[in-house]
Amino acid sequence: MFTGIIETLGKVKNIEKEGGNLHLYVSCNFTHELKIDQSVAHNGVCLTVVDIENDTYQVTAIEETLQKTNLGNLQKDDVVNLERGMQLGARLDGHIVQGHVDQTAVCKQIEQQDGSTIFSFTYDESLHNITIEKGSITVNGVSLTVVNSQKNEFSVAIIPYTLENTTFKYLKENDVVNLEFDVIGKYVKRLVEVNKS
């Protein structure tokens, strides 16, 4: 369980393919605090630490994860958003984030707007995910509030602090991002669908 409040940025030190899996070797400022079997969200994708050596730890993304996320696009020296699992009893500053990416989206527009930056995204509507105005969305692991919700597209407004302390500062138009839709919204949507049948 995560909150979508990014702890730090990590740097991809190496990538190895093994069959359908991808081993990522990541360095960050909290590596020395990690333990094997611990969960860390990478651009919003929950992965398990399987090895630690000096300031670098290893996680593995399986083929199913690679098909639904942007992790397969990562290259050596890329930067990722990182968050360790939520501590029981801590404040929930973002929203409930599972680290289970629903699908990817494409950044269609970036515009500066009087103190904030507006990022607009489109996503494949065939998976029937939805956003709502002022609802929660997780983009590359960052908990955000939806503005301008439309069918298969939405925007988010990023404050300067979030822009500077996440990978949003590197995001460009046409980049692919990971989306996790609000878990409560997903359950409500499913209940409505079941009651219709």
Rank of each mutant, 00 (worst) to 15 (best):
V156S: 02
T166L: 08
Q38V: 10
K189F: 09
F119R: 05
E83V: 05
P160Y: 03
Q87G: 03
N73G: 13
Q109F: 06
S27L: 05
K68G: 05
I6F: 09
T166R: 12
F2P: 08
E111M: 13
S197F: 09
E7G: 12
I6H: 13
G141V: 00
D37N: 15
C46Q: 07
I110M: 10
S149R: 06
A105W: 01
L74Q: 10
S126Y: 01
G44M: 02
K11A: 11
D124I: 05
I130E: 15
H128M: 14
V176T: 14
A105E: 00
T8Q: 14
G135A: 06
S27Y: 03
T117V: 15
D175K: 01
E111Q: 15
H23Y: 12
T8P: 14
K172N: 14
I132G: 13
H95R: 09
N129W: 07
E64Y: 10
V139A: 02
E83H: 08
Q75F: 02
I5H: 13
V192R: 11
A90F: 07
I184Y: 09
I110N: 02
K172E: 08
T60H: 05
I158P: 01
G99K: 03
L9A: 07
L22D: 02
T166Q: 04
G4R: 14
A61Q: 13
E18S: 15
A157L: 07
L47T: 08
D93Q: 13
T167W: 01
N140G: 04
V97D: 03
V49P: 10
E53P: 08
Y123N: 05
D175W: 00
R84W: 04
T162E: 02
N129D: 13
L171V: 09
Y25F: 15
I96N: 04
G20E: 09
E7A: 07
H32V: 10
T60C: 14
V188D: 12
V26Q: 02
L74D: 09
V12Q: 09
V26E: 03
F121K: 00
Q87K: 15
T131C: 12
R84Q: 11
E63C: 12
A41W: 01
L171P: 01
G89L: 01
L66Q: 08
N54S: 15
K169V: 00
F168S: 06
I15K: 13
N129L: 07
F30S: 03
N81Y: 08
L191K: 14
K151I: 06
C107K: 08
D51M: 07
D37V: 12
F168N: 10
V50C: 13
G135R: 07
V188H: 11
